[in-house]
């Protein structure tokens, strides 16, 4: 049993890594009270998914997907380029999301003078409403 598990983990270690990263990110997003830490958690979460995508595309011993005469003649395998393209787009999205989230944190800091969630809730209660 144990051996099987270890074999399973090692054979597909790339998936396990992204799962672990994902859970770390998820934990940070939910459990952390600091707004910046939440954003970091979000980033870890997103990166985990990116890694997952990229590792999908990889082929052992594959070359970069630039198709030339040489590659065709030599019968080289090349990695799938599509996930890279997709993730490039997704990274842009992630960066934009982070930017928006950080901008919001800055504005909240200006407004409340803190970036701790609980303190903000406290302040809101003090302000009434």
């Amino acid at each position: 049993m144990m051996e099987w598990l270890i074999a399973e983990i090692f054979a597909k270690y790339n998936y396990w890594v992204s799962i672990v990263l994902m859970l770390i990110g998820f934990y940070a997003m939910i459990a952390k009270g600091n707004l910046i830490k939440k954003v970091i958690g979000l980033n870890i979460f997103q990166t985990a998914i990116f890694l997952f995508f990229i590792s999908l595309a990889d082929i052992r011993g594959g070359t970069e997907p630039i198709v030339s005469e040489e590659i065709i003649h030599m019968g080289y395998v090349y990695v799938n380029p599509l996930p890279h393209v997709l993730i490039l787009t997704a990274i842009v999205v992630a960066v934009a999301t982070t930017a928006v989230a950080l901008a919001l944190v800055i504005r909240m800091y200006e407004e409340y003078g803190t970036i701790e969630e609980e303190e903000i809730i406290e302040k809101e209660r003090e302000m009434g409403l």
Partner: peptide, 19 residues
Amino acid sequence: GRALKASYNYVIMGSIGAC
């Protein structure tokens, strides 16, 4: 004001959804 907090929560939740 309070919209910032609302928006921030939406960012976090929405991003989880999108992920």
